[in-house]
Amino acid sequence: MSDPSRDSRIDWKAAEQSPEFRDLIAARRRFVVPGTIFFLSWYFGFILLAGYAKDFMASSVYEGLTVGYCLALTQFVMVAVLGLMYLKRAQNVYDPLAAKAAQVALDAGREQGRRS
């Protein structure tokens, strides 16, 4: 087989338990879990208000601009901000950690390959 991840007989179980991989998972979770909770809460807060607080959403902030429209715009801002934050963190934090975890798994695999 030409696939190096098979050639080197990666021990996936060991790779999954390696401290490097655990670091990656922990780092990603620290952002993705609160991020997901936040965006779902903000989004469903908006949806619930649109469903159950129609008068509030229809009230005017400034002339024809309603609370509902402003809150809808905050959703757009949220998507942009969370998207860029994730992108930045992924490039600066997760990618190096992922590369490290992958390298450790490959090295361990080669080591094993030589011994057997």
Binding site: S5, A15, F21, L24, I25, R28, L106
Partner: peptide
Amino acid sequence: VRSETGLGAEGSVLAPTQ
């Protein structure tokens, strides 16, 4: 491990061949 790190992913640098 594969989905989180990309190790062994289709056409990836770490797996240059199919």
